[in-house]
Amino acid sequence: MDNIIELKGLKKAFDGNGVLKDINLTVKKGENVVVIGKSGAGKSVTIKCIVRMIDPDEGSVKVFGKEVQEMNDDELRELRIKTGFLFQSGALYDSMTVRENLAFPLERVLKIKDENEIEERSKEVLEAVGLSDAIDKMPADLSGGMRKRMGLARTIIVRPEIMLYDEPTTGLDTITSREISELIMKVHKQYKTTSIIITHDMACAKITADRIVVMEDGQLIAEGTYGDLQRSEDELIRAFFK
């Protein structure tokens, strides 16, 4: 399998505090990698470097074989279209209806003007996330779980090849968390995406991960399958599974 994402020697500090200290990670095409770690370990900063929302101080970020730091505006835009990013909050545009939220990336990113195509694709993704009835609702009318689903629908509507999930189940009850985790797998199979999933939720990691990497204080300290890490001799790693 080809490496889709390659992070080498990634370092980042904010106000002198090192958040990333030599991160090395590769993700292969079609792979689901779950990153677990305590709050402040640098998980979100890592995935933000992949789409250049944050510039690393040192190191290399290669996506689809291209150095992200060297991309010009058009190349970066193309990368961002191919890379879906699901924010923790869903980040729905709250002044727009669900329909307008879905049409926004189609009209402005893919430059689709045909209203029938926009309608068809909107219905397709809403069906995929189980929100077919919500098309005319405002984001404020949606529950936490629905907002996450809706955020996912808006992300996959442009059919990205890579999905980056920033704590997709945080703040949700156990049942809804499980539904979102299963939805991540459904999206993975239906759209054949490569994913990095940042989470604290081990149930989510168990459902979604091909491989789990553990981050601690800006470094990757362990890597393996769910079973491997559960049996780890390192107490710090085993603590995540308790």
Partner: peptide
């Protein structure tokens, strides 16, 4: 604050 601007930017919109 609600990351809507980040979401716009990271989706490739302007």
């Amino acid at each position: 604050v609600s990351e809507q601007i980040d979401a716009m930017e990271v989706s490739g919109a302007n």
